[in-house]
Each structure stands twice: as structure tokens, then as C-alpha cells.
């Protein structure tokens, strides 16, 4: 009854237009080894992940520290070099591109980082920061670049007179607006937003989320959105993927995932949202123990050591990410019983 194909081959996915296809992506990092042990060990930060992101959607990625969500995202935009697998952007495998072609492609894939203070060069003015990409690509004559920078700074909610100031003169929310203008300057198609609101106060976070939504509608942007606040991810994403120990363990439409998770880890994760008891009447599942080491993950299902439903098969066979109902994918041998 469940098909074990990859998420992009589901009927709806075939109709939808994938802008980005990730296939069997692995990003492993060497650790330790050295003189004494003589043997290099590998952290499997991203371990055989496949999924697609559709044009114009927001794909939210959740999971706890060390689950590999940031490494996956950074591997997709090639801030990390994957160990194996494919990332196809508009059908083109990014790994196969020459350095020059990749540089051209990069303007389509931009990144908004969590901490605009550490991602913005403090010596540059806002004008230089926003124009940097345009000045490197040189697709536009100078007066038009200038015009676009002035338009952008206002579009993200700052003023023209801010252009000659430096990042430290701004509040956290304003700095994130600068980061957004910078990402938008090259008219990208795809933006990785890696914890873009996590460092901001709640009231400012709402302003930035509203801005990101407006810009998405206005420019037809596709977002890969990472946030540790699960309520923010639910609100902001069309579809959500859940990661655990380097694997993608569940993918579904946000509403469906939050209403009816099929993978026990997702269930436990969502039940931990603080203050939710009163809102959704969900029963709190308190997980025992801690996340195993990604150097030596459990055999079979990565979650089995903490799962209250684990059986013998869970140690032997890694459950594939399978379509358990239309457009809802879960990696669990007992997804129909959760």
C-alpha cells in the first residue's frame, strides 16, 4: 500500500514544478582520526536525503541541533560540498557545473543568514553591502545598479538616507532588512533563509516574516526556510520536512504534518512546542535519553533507540521515506499505527 519511491515522484509532485531536486545527498565530515586512533571517523551530517522543492513554495526544514538541517541547506546552495548525491536546480546538476557556470548560477540562489551582524561587513556602507553582488556580476550599467539599490532599500522598509550608514548603526531587525535587500539584489529565484528571525525579538520577528511573505508574492520567490521555532515554521511554510540524525524522516503539507504526524519523532517534536497543551490539547510526549552520536548512528531506523514503538525490524531495516498517503511521506515501519 505504501510506495517507496522518492517524494518528487508523487502524483502531485509530478504536476507541480520542482525548482530544486535533491537526490541521495550525503555530506559527511571527517572527525578525530589523527595520530592515536589512526583511523578517520565520519560524521554523517546529511545521510542520503532526497526531496524536491516546488517553484514558488516555502519549504520549511525542522529538527533539533545536530540533526543536519543547516548542513543540508548549505549543501544545497553549495556553501558545503556534498560527499555524494545530486542537487538539481532547474534540472541542472550544480555539482557538474564549471566554476564559472556555478558563479553565474549563484545569483539565482541566495542566502539570508541568522545573524546579520556577522554576515555583514562592518566597514561597508549599506549601499555597498546591497550593491556588492550587482557589482561583482556587472550585468547592469552603473546608474541602473544605483537605482536598483535605492529601490531595494525602500522596498525592505528602510530609507534612502540609511544607504550611507554602517551596519552597527542599525537595530537587529533593520540589519536583517539589509540582509534581505542584499539577497534580493540579484533577483534570485531561490532563497535559503537559515534562521532569519531567530535572533530577533518577537515583535520584530513578525515584521520580518510579513516582509518575507510580501517579497515572495511579489517576486515569485521559492524559500527554503529554517527556524527552530516550530510555530513559526508551521505558519510560514507550505510544506515541512523533519530531520533526525542526518535523515529526512517526514515530509508533508504543513497543516497535515502538524495535525497528523506519522513518524513518532515528529509526533514527539511537535508535542514539545511550549504552551501548546492549551491550544491544541496535544498530549506531551517526553522523549527519553538523548540523540545518539552521528558518528555511530543506530542501525536501522535512527530514532529506534528513543522510540516507544520500536520493534525488532527497526534495528534491522532502515525504513525508507515512503508515501503513506497522498503527498505525505514518512520513514517509519509503523506509520499507519502512530
Amino acid at each position: 500500500m505504501t510506495t517507496t519511491a522518492e517524494p518528487m515522484t508523487s502524483p502531485a509532485a509530478r504536476e507541480a514544478d520542482p525548482i530544486l531536486e535533491v537526490r541521495n545527498l550525503k555530506t559527511h565530515f571527517p572527525v578525530g582520526g589523527g595520530l592515536l586512533s589512526g583511523r578517520t571517523q565520519w560524521v554523517k551530517a546529511v545521510d542520503d536525503v532526497s526531496f524536491s522543492i516546488f517553484r514558488g513554495e516555502t519549504f520549511g526544514l525542522v529538527g533539533e541541533s545536530g540533526c543536519g538541517k543547516s548542513t543540508l541547506a548549505r549543501s544545497i546552495v553549495r556553501l558545503e560540498t556534498p560527499t555524494a548525491g545530486e542537487v538539481r536546480f532547474e534540472g541542472e546538476d550544480l555539482a557538474s557545473l564549471s566554476r564559472r557556470r556555478l558563479r553565474r548560477r549563484r545569483k539565482d540562489l541566495q542566502v539570508i543568514f541568522q545573524d546579520p551582524m556577522s554576515s555583514l561587513d562592518p566597514r561597508m556602507t549599506v549601499r555597498e553591502l546591497i550593491a556588492e553582488g550587482l557589482d561583482i556580476q556587472r550585468d547592469l550599467p552603473r546608474p541602473e545598479r544605483r537605482e536598483r539599490v535605492e529601490w531595494l532599500v525602500e522596498r525592505v522598509g528602510l530609507r534612502r538616507e540609511h544607504l550611507d550608514r554602517h551596519p552597527h548603526e542599525f537595530s537587529g531587525g533593520q540589519r536583517q532588512r539589509i540582509g534581505i535587500a542584499r539577497a534580493l539584489a540579484l533577483r534570485p529565484k531561490f532563497i535559503l533563509a537559515d534562521e532569519p528571525v531567530s535572533a530577533l525579538d518577537v515583535s520584530v520577528q513578525a515584521q520580518v516574516l510579513n516582509l518575507l511573505s510580501e517579497l515572495q508574492a511579489e517576486f515569485g520567490l521559492t524559500y527554503l526556510f529554517i527556524a527552530h521555532d516550530l510555530s513559526v515554521v508551521e505558519y510560514f511554510s507550505d510544506r515541512v520536512g523533519v530531520m533526525y540524525l542526518g535523515k529526512l524522516v517526514e515530509v508533508a503539507k504543513a497543516e497535515e504534518l502538524y495535525a497528523d504526524p506519522r513518524m513518532p519523532y515528529t509526533k514527539a517534536l511537535l508535542s514539545a512546542i511550549p504552551g501548546e497543551g492549551g491550544v491544541r490539547g496535544r498530549e506531551r510526549i517526553v522523549l527519553k535519553g538523548e540523540v545518539p552520536s552521528p558518528i555511530d548512528p543506530p542501525s536501522g531506523c535512527p530514532f529506534r533507540t528513543r522510540c516507544w514503538m520500536a520493534q525488532g525490524i527497526c534495528a534491522e531495516v532502515t525504513p525508507p521515506l515512503a508515501e503513506v498517503r497522498p503527498d505525505h511521506w514518512a520513514a517509519c515501519h509503523f506509520s499507519d499505527r502512530t
Partner: peptide, 8 residues
């Protein structure tokens, strides 16, 4: 400012 379920 805080997203609530159903506000999507």
C-alpha cells in the same frame, strides 16, 4: 506577533 495555528 506570534503565529498561532490556523493563521496561515
Amino acid at each position: 506577533s506570534m503565529p498561532q495555528p490556523g493563521m496561515k
